[in-house]
Design a protein around this nucleic acid. Sequence first.
RNA 1: AGAGAGGUGGCCGAGUGGUUUAAGGCGCACGCUUGGAAAGCGUGUUAGCGCGAAAGUGUUACGAGGGUUCGAAUCCCUUCCUCUCUACCA
Length: 426
Amino acid sequence: MLEINKIRENKESIISLLKVRNKDFSQLIQDALSQDELRRKSQFTLDQELSEMNQISKKIGELFKEGKQEEAIVLKNKTVLLKESTKKLKEQLLSSEIAIKEILCQIPNVPNAIVPAGNSEEQNEVIQTFGKEPNLFDGAVPHWELAKKYNLIDFELGVKITGAGFPVYTGKGAQLQRALINFFLNEAISNNYQEVIPPLLVNADSGYATGQLPDKEGQMYFMQEDQLYLIPTAEVPITNIFRDVILNENDFPVKRVGYTPCFRREAGSYGKDVRGLNRLHQFDKVEIVQISHPEKSYAILDEMVAHVKALLEKLGLPSRVLKLCGGDLGFTACLTYDFEVFSAAQDKWLEVSSVSNFETYQSNRLKLRFKSKNEKNQLVHTLNGSALALPRIMAALLENNQTEKGITIPEVLVPYTGFNIISNVE
RNA sequence: AGAGAGGUGGCCGAGUGGUUUAAGGCGCACGCUUGGAAAGCGUGUUAGCGCGAAAGUGUUACGAGGGUUCGAAUCCCUUCCUCUCUACCA
């Protein structure tokens, strides 16, 4: 959520930066500002009247003590009108506060000035490409066929147990999956991230604080009975560790990493892109989260991008980095870099990571601040990124590393898997 | 899940309707004292919002939300959480 004070101070530049999202938010912003004016007026009058009330009450107490009942009663009568008036003012104050919040929830984060214009993913800007595309032998097949051939993933079994989008990993498929998770966690730990294992269900407060609610309500699985949401990403519970927290300046940088399964309803996304591991309802992901001093957040974003890049390089996957354009930028982000790996057998790019700076958009809701030495407490910047999402990495690994003899395991993973090839020979 | 006891500042802890302007203690910061330190003494030490150029000042918050009252940490209702015992279980 944007800060109303900042909107008041930088109205014009906020409106113009938001234009890159291909939508005009000037009306909403104007509405928020008028509500804000109303709010401040109400509060000013209310505070004055409450102050008067407090004084009268104090006096009544004193009069009773001195036994001056009659004078006290006169004063009591005087409060009747005041009381009515404060009640109305309180309602007005509350309703403008609610109105402001409602409006602010509809306004996405202000894109960074370097976010390119564009209204679809085609206009995302490729900023670097690395890794070598493999030369596959004749007869190379997509990962869903490999999964079947080598008994790595059983999609039909998942359908029986749960439904589409809930695959069962078996044998070496399961072992490879676990190896990847451990590899990603260890790489993060060696970059000074602290590991956490958070809850997989969160309450509505947490959903609101990181911005999944109300924006993506329909995308999360919801448990009616206990009013809990299954997490769509570890970002939610990990970032919410810091809800209502005031950090000290020397706590920075805060770096957390967590592996969790992620659950997404993916309502409305059916068709060609959902084949195999490309889009699932349940998938594994290792997520990195940083909480940063406002002045350092863009340097930290670069650091996180470098971290993700190194993972893909170590796995030897042909990849590229995109800077998302305004039309593809998430609701809560200022700047996002996506990583895609090239899936040779499908001949397409698959998104495996998204690294974003949210500046104060989340911390405003989280009420996550830090004590700075001489100034007033101020909001921190939050950032997060996938490092990495498993299914498409698995897909790309299987497809790109297939040989006539079997699927070779990247060297860095061998200590984790305990085998260096998946073949049918055994 | 059933019964009971609780939830007060950074921490401990007093407070059952009116100087609570939240006692007292611990911790922390600064100052005095000292050759230096400790002790001692003094001062300060929550957050949000509003008004103000600033100094400052008003208001709100005692788990959360409602209610009673001129006035609520204190009384009433709802709800969340913690602890103890019982039950169940991994």
